[in-house]
Write a protein that binds this DNA or RNA. Structure first.
Lengths: 263, 263
DNA sequence: CGATGTGAAATTGGATAGCAATTCCTGTTT
DNA sequence: AAACAGGAATTGCTATCCAATTTCACATCG
């Protein structure tokens, strides 16, 4: 573990993208310090990291809050995400070998099975993960980091927003993008990526409470070492054969069908 | 001012992109704390910000150092920068109005005059700034921040690297990109952006000491409030009519022709 | 003479206590 | 009901202290 503030920043990030800490929620230094059993300073450092990542807003002498992006900012984040994924698509269409396409197809297939099995939680995570796998194949760590940050911010947006779109369509989009790219039909693929993201944004309605507001103590309880028993129970519920296992450490607080996350 | 740690992070960032703090330079907490007259904690918070920005590396129990990116990472940073600028180019080619094109042309013209006047320092800064103006016209703050971070990292790279390319060619590239985009020849423009960046990278030779290593105290002296007199003197030397004036507060420690910076 | 072990010094990561400034909240007054 | 005042709470920061780790000079040994 690099540092304690990093560990705490990671937990807070996780809690935010799990929609357990919702936008606007106060991240009081003293309260968090008590919850994590560390000094205020460590908490402040963690919160600074979140703020640099766009997940928190720090107001001088008032404290830190989970970020509450405006609709304008939401559009910008999705635009940036589209731009990045289109660019990666262009690179992959030139450089990716058969193994890469196979990996992508395999990922889509796993998601399809999850949907078929009715495991929405798994399908949801796989749907988000697809985009990350896609970018990872570019073999560009810098780009990966930028993309991951944008994805986190879109996930945050989903706390603020009710999505109203057809889940299966998005799965098909992934599949079609792969086909188009492998056939060299780059322009068509890029249009599809754009449409894909737009179809997500279009259904958004802001200023509606989507997830319940929990106190930081309630929200963070499952991530603490003390709550290990609790955590494992949650894990069993979600499914087990997936390698990026810690994703399931805590299931979203409030996951329903048709609210599935997919940037 | 938002916070003291942010202010210090800004100064350190400035010193790094001015090539006064060179890669590998130790950023000792105690030393910096003494230099800035703040406590160690504020320094640590500032350094965390730098590390999140890719400008510093923190090694547990060893301290923070100015980042020393590998050749691999350098390529990735330039690839990412190319990707972002190509994407922005695509957006601008559809959306930008006459005023925008005029602003870009005006910027190139200013740089051309600076070159003609032999003011290399100004030309250098304007050359870098062009890319930022370009991205700003996309009206996407999120994208701007990502791009600015990438530009800072390329500037850091230039501390590590000797550039050996034809300065005027790069200026012409800017002009040609504008022409191509305005005429709707997007693909050609994107190729040129790629070539532009590649021509910069190709001339790079790593592992050569380009800038002298200063101690943090020497490197930071000009930025401190105490050194205000010193700062203004430096300002006069570099030229004055440019609006982003703080760029000239401190001229690069070691600026020569043919080492001009242009991402 | 070089390699290796060792202990002191220096540095980091963190805890704790405390203080000034600011903001928030509440209760009183008008 | 509105306005004001003052105390409580919170933040930003300092100072000091401590444990863990690294560094480095020095002594020891092959």
């Amino acid at each position: 573990m690099s540092s304690r503030s990093q560990a705490i920043a990671d937990i807070l990030t996780r809690a935010i993208i799990d929609h357990r800490l919702v936008p606007g929620c106060k991240l009081g230094e003293r309260e968090l310090a008590e919850i994590f059993g560390v000094s205020r300073i460590v908490v402040r450092q963690a919160v600074i990291r979140l703020a640099d990542d766009g997940l928190a807003q720090i107001e001088r002498n008032r404290g830190a809050f989970v970020a509450k992006p405006s609709m304008q900012e939401a559009m910008e984040i999705y635009d940036a995400l589209t731009l990045v994924e289109q660019g990666v698509a262009a690179q992959l269409s030139e450089r990716l070998g058969p193994g890469g396409w196979a990996e992508l197809r395999q990922h889509v297939e796993r998601q399809r099975q999850a949907v078929a099995a009715g495991n929405d939680a798994l399908a949801d995570v796989l749907g988000q993960e697809f985009h990350s796998v896609f970018v990872r194949l570019s073999r560009n760590k810098v780009m990966q980091d930028i993309h991951a940050q944008l994805v986190r911010r879109t996930t945050l947006l989903r706390s603020l927003i009710t999505a109203d779109f057809d889940y299966c369509n998005l799965l098909d989009d992934h599949s079609r993008v792969i086909d188009l790219l492998e056939k060299g039909r780059l322009k068509k693929a890029m249009e599809l990526i754009d449409t894909h993201h737009r179809s997500v944004v279009r259904g958004y309605i802001m200023d509606r409470a989507v997830f319940p507001e929990l106190s930081p103590r309630e929200a963070l309880a499952p991530y603490l070492a003390d709550g290990a028993a609790n955590t494992e129970a949650a894990n069993d519920e979600a499914g087990s054969e997936h390698k990026g296992a810690q994703i399931y450490a805590i299931p979203p607080a409030n996951l329903r069908r048709n609210q599935a996350g997919d940037p």
